[in-house]
């Protein structure tokens, strides 16, 4: 009877853990997709900057520094997504929550 109960417990434990880890990986993949839109926006910004340099080559230095600051600020959203996915993969809070709150057998 005791072995049966512990077997059942181990199976349920592994099922719950793999459930949490698998869904976390899917969530991390979706979170990293936030990098799409900043890349798109940076492409637009750089294209406009190239147009501006072509129109006014003497202002190239100022345009370049302004474009770089804009690009780096626009990148923040993508970096937030990357941070969320890294937390979900490397420092998953739900796994430790699951392990800490196991019911006593």
């Amino acid at each position: 009877m005791i072995t049966l109960a512990s077997d059942y417990f181990a199976t349920a434990y592994m099922a719950g853990l793999s459930h949490i880890i698998g869904l976390s990986i899917i969530g991390a993949t979706i979170a990293v997709l936030a990098g799409m839109s900043p890349s798109f926006a940076q492409g637009l910004a750089v294209g406009r900057a190239v147009e501006a340099v072509g129109r006014q080559p003497e202002a190239a230095g100022q345009i370049r520094s302004t474009m770089l600051i804009g690009c780096v600020v626009a990148e923040t959203g993508g970096v937030y997504g990357l941070a969320v996915s890294m937390i979900l993969i490397f420092a998953n809070p739900f796994v430790s929550m699951f392990v800490d709150n196991l019911p006593a057998l």
């Binding site: 970096v79 990357l82 941070a83």
Partner: peptide
């Protein structure tokens, strides 16, 4: 938070 997370995210992303 935004200032530090930008630097951290870029460096950790490059590391990974």
């Amino acid at each position: 938070i935004s200032l530090s997370l930008r630097l951290f995210g870029n460096m950790a992303g490059g590391l990974i």
